[in-house]
């Protein structure tokens, strides 16, 4: 009996290893095309924003005529990203598109890639150190800035605001937090800001909101740095406190979000939240691939305005960053068909 179990177990293990191997070998099939292959690593598979990005990548690769290798996924883990990059390179990638969520730990990988003359385009984040061909990124400071101006305006420059910060170990979380704090301090000194650390976790944001509302029932504004994780928990807390009322009601709490996912637009239409900043998932995919292709074609770029409403800026270490526009979406333009959140 025991022997039977063991052999069955062994069979299962062998089969699963074989399946895993079979899976990875399909990756090299892209080599058949004569164009130089471009490797893409997706940062994570558990957020709406990045899933939309993942959907746009093959679509734009087709439009731009790029020989794209099957994308790898690093599951928000910089160690996996390093391993994936090595795998892509050994499979023959001539350029790499990645979105390192840990912007410090990727430096040595970038140095290795540079020594192999493989250009790198980073999406969404700018590495703290190391050479990249181009950073494709929305201006995250503008997110915080726009949220601050919107809330400051709606509150008439006074009152209390709660802010759900992302992770301070990511450059996007830091940029949004700093820009929001700077703007509040300089433009709306009459507003008190409660900045809540959440590590991008909805449960932590909900707990912080409950606690703060008990402590300060007169909170009038909410800034959530990522709608994908904070929207539903925030609405649920407000609903249970009877505070989910239309903007015309004096009890209404003004809420601004960042991301631009369809659920946020739905909430804006219903009057539950008031605005969001749309992070352009489609443009991220399009221009990441565009610059990767340009790098292989030997093109170079200079700081200055581009042909697609954005600006390339020199961000130091000889790196350039294409800062894509991120529109503020309110009740007035929520039905705009060009917003990526309205296209899925």
């Amino acid at each position: 009996m025991r022997y039977k179990f063991r052999s069955a177990l062994a069979a299962v293990l062998i089969l699963s290893t074989a399946a895993a191997c079979g899976d990875s070998s399909t990756g090299s099939a892209a080599g058949g095309n004569s164009k130089p292959p471009i490797g893409v690593d997706l940062p994570r598979a558990d957020s709406d924003f990045w899933n939309s990005y993942a959907k746009y990548v093959p679509q734009f690769a087709g439009e731009l005529g790029i020989n794209m290798m099957p994308p790898t996924n690093s599951q928000n883990d910089v160690a996996k990203l390093v391993a994936n990059t090595q795998a892509l390179v050994s499979q023959g990638a001539k350029a790499i598109v990645m979105a390192p969520q840990d912007t410090g730990a990727i430096a040595s990988t970038l140095t290795t890639l540079e020594s192999k003359k493989i250009p790198v385009v980073t999406v969404d984040t700018r590495p703290d150190k190391g050479k990249v061909f181009m950073v494709v990124r929305a201006d995250n400071r503008a997110y915080g800035q726009k949220a601050c101006e919107f809330l400051g305006d709606k509150l008439g420059g006074k009152g209390k605001v709660i802010e759900f910060q992302g992770s301070l170990s990511s450059i996007n979380g830091r940029d949004r937090s700093e820009a929001f704090a700077d703007c509040m301090k300089s433009k709306f000194p009459g507003i008190t800001v409660f900045a809540e650390p959440t590590e991008w976790e909805g449960a932590k944001a909900a707990a912080a909101l409950q606690t703060r509302l008990a402590q300060h029932p007169d909170i009038k504004g909410i800034y959530m740095q990522a709608g994908g994780v904070f929207l539903a928990p925030t609405l649920q807390v407000l609903k249970s406190k009877g505070l989910l009322v239309p903007p015309t009601d004096p009890k209404h709490i003004f809420a601004v979000s960042n991301d631009g996912i369809p659920q946020e637009y739905e909430s804006i239409r219903k009057g539950e939240i008031d605005a969001t900043v749309s992070q352009p998932a489609d443009l991220y995919a399009k221009y990441a691939l565009f610059y990767a292709k340009a790098a292989l074609d030997g093109k170079t770029f200079q700081p200055g305005p581009t042909d697609h409403d954005s600006t390339i800026v020199d961000v130091g270490n000889g790196n350039l960053e294409d800062q894509l526009a991120a529109p503020l979406v309110t009740k007035d333009n929520v039905d705009d068909k060009t917003l990526w959140g309205n296209q899925i």
Binding site: S47, P233, Q236
Partner: peptide, 12 residues
């Protein structure tokens, strides 16, 4: 309980 409290099932 968590789904009810937070109003969604997060992937994480």
């Amino acid at each position: 309980l968590m789904t009810g409290r937070l109003g969604s099932v997060a992937a994480a």
